[in-house]
Design a protein around this nucleic acid. Structure first.
Length: 340
DNA sequence: AAGACGGGGTA
DNA sequence: TACCCAGTCTT
């Protein structure tokens, strides 16, 4: 008798699964918390990037309750460098709902889970699979790629629908948790986007892409917008001029140097408007930063001792900056000017 | 249905 | 450089 694809994935997983911090737990509630935390951190973020963040975060916030008793600022500070900071906000909101409405436990049904902040279709199904061993499979990038390759599903308008249909056939009752994790494990370690390592794959005998020797998938076209800004660097008595209120999209609301759109603004007029522009303005250097779907050209300018007309700007010491949330964006600028 | 949202790894 | 990552939410 032929062994089913699911069984092959499951036995492969038992044998080859990695030891990861969220795969070891003290008890069931600890498992709920660890798996949920890992799923939030792993959204669009690779395992190896997450591991140190997870360990540090878990040490400081070891359960749902601890997340309800701290400020969102503190949580975001722990998230610093991981990106997609909305996740940290949603995580706290979800923790509060779990503590206040679900007796500190993760709900075990789709309806309740999908209604929690930061939990979408993928995470809801995956939590049900991993934690409660329910016969569902969440479709992430890994699962999508494996299914597409094994069944040689051509990219088309309803690619996702086809993937869903084939994925459903794999669901199993007894070891669905291992199946779910095995799919992702194979996806990230073996069935990689480029150069899949088929010699290690347990599915080669049923993989149509392997049979046809064609593994190329249609890539997601990603549009990168070019944006240009100028940034004002001002340094006084060991302190930097900064603000929380500049309107730079992705990191709006976080501490940053004064930043202005290069296209819309005339530099001198802008400086006159916000600052006492009587001092000389010097161009320092051009910096290129990639962030989300943008490529930003930053033109750094220096002005000595401006007095601010606008209350939203203030001077802050480097020591205090360290205590604040620092985006990689802001850190990069800081690094560039620190030796000027 | 498309765009916004971070930052780092990899070929 | 371009693409990808255990996606979700908003418009």
């Amino acid at each position: 008798m032929r062994i089913s694809i699911s069984k092959k994935i499951i036995s492969w997983y038992f044998k080859h699964k990695r030891t990861l911090p969220w795969r070891e737990y003290k008890n069931l509630i600890d498992k709920h918390y660890k798996v949920l935390l890992s799923e939030f951190m792993l959204q669009q973020t690779q395992v190896n990037t997450v591991i140190p963040y997870f360990n540090k975060f878990y040490k400081k916030y070891p359960n749902f309750k601890s997340l309800t008793k701290t400020s969102n600022t503190s949580i975001i500070k722990m998230w610093q460098g991981l990106g997609y900071y909305r996740r940290a906000k949603f995580l706290q909101q979800t923790a509060k709902i779990i503590v206040n409405q679900h007796e500190g436990k993760l709900p075990d049904n789709y309806e309740a889970l999908i209604n929690l902040p930061g939990i979408g279709d993928y995470t809801a199904k995956t939590l049900l699979a991993i934690i409660f061993n329910k016969p569902l499979i969440g479709i992430d990038g890994n699962v999508k790629r494996i299914i597409q390759r094994v069944f040689d599903i051509k990219s088309s308008k309803n690619l996702l629908q086809s993937v869903k249909k084939f994925t459903k056939k794999l669901q199993c009752k007894k070891f669905n948790s291992e199946l779910m994790q095995g799919l992702m494990e194979i996806g990230s370690l073996i069935c990689k986007p480029k150069n899949p390592n088929c010699s290690l794959c347990p599915l080669t005998s049923e993989c149509l892409s392997y049979k046809n020797k064609s593994f190329k998938l249609k890539s997601n076209k990603k549009i990168t917008k070019l944006e240009e800004y100028f940034i004002l660097v001002s340094f006084k008595n060991g302190r930097y001029l900064m603000t929380y209120e500049d309107n730079f999209g992705p990191l709006k609301g976080f501490l940053n140097f004064p930043i202005f759109s290069y296209k819309e603004c005339n530099i001198k007029n802008t400086l006159k408007f916000h600052f006492n522009y009587s001092n000389e303005v010097l161009f320092i250097k051009k910096l290129t930063i990639l962030i989300s779907n943008r490529k930003c050209n930053l033109y750094l300018y220096k002005m000595n001792n401006p007095s601010c007309y606008d209350k939203k700007y203030f001077y802050i010491t480097k020591k205090k900056i360290k205590l604040e949330f620092q985006s990689s964006f802001m850190k990069r600028i800081l690094k560039e000017i620190t030796h000027i």
